[in-house]
Amino acid sequence: MVQINKNRIEINGNIVELPYSILEAKEFEQCILVIFDYMEFNQNSVARNFHSIKQDGSILWVAENPTTQSTDAYVHFISLDLNGHQVVVNNFAGYTCTIDLADGKLLKGEFTK
């Protein structure tokens, strides 16, 4: 079970400290999907704030963003499709994004604003 407290995640009794505050996190197989607080990233560039991390805190991948706008940042999970091996997340720039859980590649970015 995963518990979140600001920039720390407790995973099965082990505490992992991460570089940014966490907005949301979800367990997936042997990793944790983490959306960090985009306000802690450089406000003049894309926030690369959606990561997949191992239970020891090391990074597996950083998700691709749909644009190069400074407002491009992930904000929350919509759904997790284990059979399709993908996750759908909302983006502050107005996109609904489908991300491949294997490597963080952007499979689909649909402007919905």
Score class of each variant (00 low, 15 high):
70 S>V: 08
78 I>P: 03
71 T>R: 15
89 V>D: 02
81 D>K: 03
66 P>E: 10
75 V>P: 03
59 I>F: 00
69 Q>S: 15
58 S>C: 01
76 H>I: 06
74 Y>G: 03
58 S>M: 03
58 S>V: 03
81 D>L: 02
94 G>Y: 05
76 H>S: 14
70 S>T: 10
94 G>A: 06
91 N>M: 06
74 Y>V: 03
85 H>S: 11
73 A>C: 12
94 G>P: 02
59 I>W: 00
79 S>Y: 03
64 E>V: 07
86 Q>T: 10
84 G>R: 08
69 Q>G: 09
57 G>P: 02
93 A>Y: 08
90 N>D: 15
81 D>C: 01
88 V>T: 11
88 V>Y: 00
86 Q>E: 12
83 N>C: 06
77 F>T: 04
70 S>Y: 09
75 V>N: 11
66 P>W: 09
64 E>R: 08
75 V>A: 10
85 H>N: 14
83 N>G: 08
61 W>I: 00
71 T>Q: 14
57 G>S: 04
81 D>W: 01
93 A>H: 06
62 V>A: 07
89 V>P: 01
69 Q>W: 13
62 V>F: 06
94 G>S: 07
76 H>E: 14
72 D>A: 12
93 A>V: 05
55 Q>T: 12
92 F>L: 15
92 F>A: 13
91 N>F: 04
94 G>L: 05
69 Q>P: 02
82 L>Q: 11
71 T>G: 15
58 S>R: 04
92 F>I: 11
87 V>C: 02
70 S>N: 12
68 T>W: 10
73 A>R: 07
63 A>S: 11
85 H>C: 09
65 N>P: 05
78 I>C: 09
64 E>I: 07
57 G>H: 01
59 I>T: 12
58 S>W: 02
59 I>L: 05
75 V>I: 15
90 N>A: 14
84 G>L: 05
73 A>V: 10
84 G>C: 06
92 F>H: 13
65 N>G: 04
84 G>S: 11
84 G>I: 02
84 G>W: 03
77 F>L: 03
68 T>C: 10
66 P>A: 11
66 P>N: 11
60 L>Y: 03
89 V>F: 04
55 Q>R: 14
55 Q>E: 13
89 V>S: 04
82 L>G: 04
87 V>I: 14
71 T>F: 13
91 N>K: 04
61 W>G: 00
59 I>V: 15
80 L>E: 06
62 V>R: 08
70 S>R: 12
63 A>E: 01
79 S>M: 04
57 G>V: 01
60 L>W: 02
75 V>S: 14
74 Y>E: 01
73 A>D: 09
75 V>D: 12
86 Q>M: 07
94 G>Q: 03
56 D>V: 05
81 D>S: 08
57 G>R: 00
72 D>I: 08
65 N>W: 04
69 Q>D: 15
77 F>Q: 03
82 L>M: 07
85 H>M: 12
73 A>E: 09
71 T>C: 13
